[in-house]
């Protein structure tokens, strides 16, 4: 089998290379978060016909750096009534949960930190650690708004995990693998070989193309809810809850929540890219195909999804709680079940 981790090929497996494999995605997350924060500021500005930040660096591109430096300098405050240990632990748990998912993201055919066979399942399981962190932070703050935000956040996360899991499961049925690297390999070829368009195969796949496209949309909506983004940001709705579960946090701990949110955005985009948009494959056959170019394609596709998430955020208003539950349980769940059933039938009779 082809190797999936070039660092281990070059230097062998020892303590140093393990640290390198762990540190590589961390560096990526930190740089990516800065880029995404800037993108958020600039795209919102363009949508609202403003200029956005213009004074820090040319066209304001150093704005996120300035913000991080500001957050680092702030006083580290622990509220008096809070449960100290849990309050201080929560940001770490949330960030570890978000960051742990990067272990199975196939950045290229030659780099995937851990090539495990149940990769997609792992991503869903590890998301629950972030949920624990949210409850921990919300409870430990001893603040009604924090607690209510945490409750809403977790109930939303649990509700929308099911349609998202159904969408992912359908692709697992179609590709008969949960390994994200193998799913990427299966989609090598042109863009009509992506699972968004029914995956590779003969003309009979036209029957499932409507279902796969529906599933892609369902997964995207569910992923917005899982990352607490507008229009599903009820847990942080500032008009009702101040800021939700991180109301009492400031300085570097708040920055960790912020980074975790952006890391989560990338994780769901990366899953979307891998299961629907061909992962690191070039859309045009052999054109710029290869391990090095794969990183470029993967990041390009994932960033496009992140861009759409930001675009949606600044376009749509917020849902009400009952609308959110209605959409999750009565629309997305039946739709994803029907699609899953149709795809399973197709795979059986193919």
């Amino acid at each position: 089998m082809q190797s999936t981790n070039f660092i281990w090929d070059l230097f062998g497996v020892n303590l140093l290379t393990v640290v390198a494999v762990v540190a590589l995605p961390l560096g990526f997350v930190l740089i990516y978060a800065l880029v995404a924060i800037l993108a958020e500021l600039k795209i919102s500005a363009w949508i609202q016909e403003r200029l956005g930040p213009m004074r820090t660096g040319p066209y304001g591109i150093l704005q996120p750096v300035a913000e991080v430096i500001k957050l680092l300098q702030k006083e580290d405050i622990t509220p008096d009534a809070s449960s100290k240990l849990l309050y201080n632990l929560a940001p770490f748990i949330i960030f570890s949960g978000a960051y742990a998912a990067f272990a199975v993201i196939p950045f290229s055919s030659a780099f995937m930190p851990a090539n495990i066979n149940v990769g997609l399942f792992y991503v869903f399981a590890i998301g629950s650690i972030s949920a624990m962190g949210i409850v921990m932070g919300g409870w430990a703050s001893s603040n009604k708004y924090s607690l209510m935000g945490a409750m809403r956040s977790v109930s939303q996360l649990i509700s929308y995990e099911i349609p998202a899991a159904m969408a992912v499961l359908s692709i697992v049925v179609l590709s008969s693998s949960m390994n994200m690297q193998e799913i990427s390999h299966a989609q090598t070829g042109y863009f009509w070989d992506w699972y968004l368009f029914g995956g590779p195969g003969s003309w009979t796949k036209v029957f499932i193309i409507p279902f796969t496209i529906t599933l892609a949309i369902a997964y995207f909506i569910a992923s917005l809810a899982e990352t607490n983004r507008v229009p599903f940001d009820i847990p942080e709705g500032e008009s009702e809850l101040v800021a939700g579960f991180h109301t009492e946090y400031g300085g570097i701990k708040f920055a960790m929540f912020y980074f975790a949110e952006y890391a989560n955005m990338f994780v769901v985009s990366a899953i979307f890219t891998t299961i629907f948009l061909g992962g690191w494959n070039s859309p045009f056959g052999e054109f710029l195909q290869g391990p090095g170019w794969g990183v470029m394609w993967f990041i390009l596709k994932s960033f496009s999804i992140v861009f759409v998430q930001i675009w949606v955020r600044w376009t749509l208003p917020r849902f009400r709680v009952d609308q959110l539950m209605y959409l999750g349980w009565k629309v997305l769940l039946p739709v994803s079940f029907i699609c899953f059933f149709a795809i399973s039938l197709f795979v059986m009779f193919k």
């Binding site: 495990i116 869903f124 650690i129």
Partner: peptide, 21 residues
């Protein structure tokens, strides 16, 4: 590996969150 991830999914993602709720 499958058992390990089921452990995280069911016990941490399901049962523990329910207990804490």
């Amino acid at each position: 590996d499958f058992l390990a991830i089921s452990q995280i999914m069911i016990y941490i993602g399901g049962i523990l969150i329910l207990i804490i709720f």
